[in-house]
Design a protein around this nucleic acid. Structure first.
Lengths: 149, 149
DNA sequence: TTTATTATTTGTAATTTGCAACTATATCAA
DNA sequence: TTGATATAGTTGCAAATTACAAATAATAAA
């Protein structure tokens, strides 16, 4: 049987390259980590700091500072939770939403370009496989069992 | 059609987690970037600094310092090229080879655990899909056209 | 031989990171 | 209630990582 790791090493590296390029939008330039943060805030429902930090596996202190930057850039807003005032609820500002959406479009553009090198059948197979893989990884205790998203 | 990016975002994040955990071997602890460097040195034939840096998309100055660290840790060796003395050929020391191999085994262990949640047919499908994906990404001008590996 | 070009290394400064310690709020237990 | 404990988040560091600019050293080209 072939070396599994090699396959995945190449794949993830290439996706890393993809991700690297797509975090600049008009005037705003953000880092890869920051784009992941925007993405998660956009996709979770009234998330707290801890929640997003856990999802992304980022140390909470690092995360705290990253969010501070994003707030300064006027992309993210922090709102104290009404019921538990220790908790800060994160949300995107209008500008933040715009940046997140633009990055999303950019990424989908890249991905569609990648998929344009396959026929419909292959494309379907690959998409189904990614889903299988995501489910399997979620089930694996060795990696992502406790992580949602 | 579903949102492609979401699928890949989740997948690459989970692989990121996988990668994060597997860079400690016995006494030696190295960073994620350093493990990628070891991997590439191990897989390329008599590679130069530039070659590996390009493959990994790391700035050459950053790379130079990372290699210095690895040399200090006695994991990597630099040998001046006989024909062009500007070039340094990189290779793994015995200890470096050991660390690289151990990480490789660790990763394959993780991956096998992930695949244990699938049946044989699914597994085959997924592996074939990753290959398709890697090829397609290699062809895409928008991402990885100029990158080997 | 002079003039590029290429490979790699340093100077320096900004950014990112994480551990430990701190503040503030909430919960639990008697 | 009150004290002890736990949780959410923020800072103080100090180390690691990064990248731009400039330097060095060797080769190639004119």
């Amino acid at each position: 049987m072939e070396n599994l790791r090699e396959l995945f090493q190449v794949m993830t590296r290439r996706f890393g390259f993809l991700n690297k390029n797509c975090c600049t939008t008009g005037g705003t330039e953000i880092s890869l980590v920051q784009s992941h943060i925007l993405y998660e805030i956009d996709h979770q429902h009234n998330p707290s700091m801890q929640q997003i930090a856990d999802t992304l596996g980022i140390d909470i202190t690092t995360f705290s500072r990253q969010v501070q930057s994003l707030v300064k850039m006027n992309l993210v807003k922090k709102t104290p939770d009404a019921e538990d005032r220790r908790i800060q609820i994160l949300s995107l500002t209008t500008e933040g939403k715009y940046v997140a959406t633009t990055i999303d479009e950019q990424m989908n553009l890249f991905l569609n370009d990648v998929f344009s090198h396959m026929n419909d059948f292959e494309k379907e197979t690959v998409i189904r496989s990614i889903k299988l893989l995501n489910n399997a990884m979620a089930k694996s205790s060795m990696c992502c069992g406790n992580i949602q998203g």
